[in-house]
Design a protein around this nucleic acid. Structure first.
Length: 302
DNA sequence: CTAATTTGACCTGG
DNA sequence: CCAGGTCAAATTAG
């Protein structure tokens, strides 16, 4: 544990340092945005790594997430999670419900996903460097745009449980709110020998003909010169009246320092408990608390 | 051809 | 019952 703790500290320090760099860059009159994005990516990587350390109490890393500008926020689900357990998709024959005509076409039969972490991101871009596969779309009542549902492409290859929901929430600058649910477990821990796995050596994963799977830590994030400087919402203590802001979100005006043409923005919904206010310690606790990593996932033979 | 998306049916929790 | 989430057949894209 000491190792993880240390590593966590290192990551966070690194992140803070980089944030400071970014800050000074932003104060320069001609800070170029390439550098800014680079720094930003660095910061986000430290977040990702930190989360990785926290969630996977082991020590593996390689969360190649967050490709282009977005800052995410982890929000421990409402603390009281009931639902006895999370057997996805009730089994076939056995415990099926009295619906006799059940298996004519049994779509659905899902239980609310329970203990997966979720975090929301608001951004003008939906790319996040992950391979997602859309599996549904729904019209949400109070929303003006439909909500799209995605799952990780490797769900069946590797049993990755990550999903996300994307919903456009605004038009002029196309703005989407993405809710990530569960972390990617794919592309790592393939043959995980029960022994220690050094944090750094991932056995090159035998480049199968995957098509361009980037090596860990995405080489080039900003593939298409996409500018995106996120604006992180800061749960201020007295933000009592967000009268003219959509929802109850508060946007921190980071972008005022930049002259990016693209009005990118990020914020985290303030619906429930947001962790911004928490101390790292508490946050760590809640995340650990929430860490459930496991292998339930009954393989469904078709 | 395979892989991804579309789209309505189907389930479940509240 | 309803709204939201998921499945899978049909369709389209690569």
């Amino acid at each position: 544990m000491g190792t993880n703790h240390k590593r966590l500290i290192e990551e966070l320090l690194e992140g803070r340092k980089t944030a400071v760099e970014l800050q000074s860059l932003l104060h320069k009159p001609f800070g170029d945005r390439e550098s800014a994005e680079e720094l930003l990516m660095k910061i986000m990587t430290t977040f990702t790594e930190s989360l990785s350390v926290l969630t996977a109490s082991n020590g593996h890393e390689d969360h190649q997430s967050a490709a282009s500008g977005e800052v995410y926020q982890v929000k421990p689900e409402p603390s009281h999670v009931e639902h006895s357990h999370c057997g996805d998709r009730s089994s076939e024959g056995s415990g099926e419900s009295p619906k006799t005509q059940a298996f004519k076409d049994r779509r659905g039969s899902y239980k609310r996903r329970k203990t997966s972490q979720s975090w929301k991101v608001i951004s003008t871009k939906i790319e996040d460097g992950q391979a997602w596969r859309k599996y549904g779309q729904k019209i949400i009542l109070k929303a003006s745009y439909p909500r799209a549902y995605f799952r990780c492409t490797r769900k069946y290859d590797q049993g990755c449980k990550a999903t996300k929901q994307v919903q456009q929430i605004q038009d002029n600058p196309r703005t989407y709110q993405t809710t990530y649910i569960g972390e990617h477990t794919c592309r790592t821990m393939i043959k995980a020998s029960p022994m220690i796995i050094g944090p750094d050596l991932w056995p090159s994963q035998t480049v199968s003909s995957e098509s361009g799977s980037p090596h860990r830590q995405n080489p080039n994030f900003f593939g298409s010169s996409s500018s995106s400087i996120p604006i992180v919402k800061q749960e201020d203590s007295k933000v009592g009246t967000p009268s003219d802001v959509t929802d109850n979100n508060v946007w921190l005006g980071l972008k005022d320092h930049l002259d990016f043409s693209e009005p990118t923005g990020i914020c985290v919904s303030s619906n429930e408990n947001v962790v911004s206010n928490m101390q790292w310690d508490d946050m760590v606790k809640s995340i650990n608390f929430e860490c459930d990593i496991n292998f339930d996932e009954g393989f469904d033979a078709v």
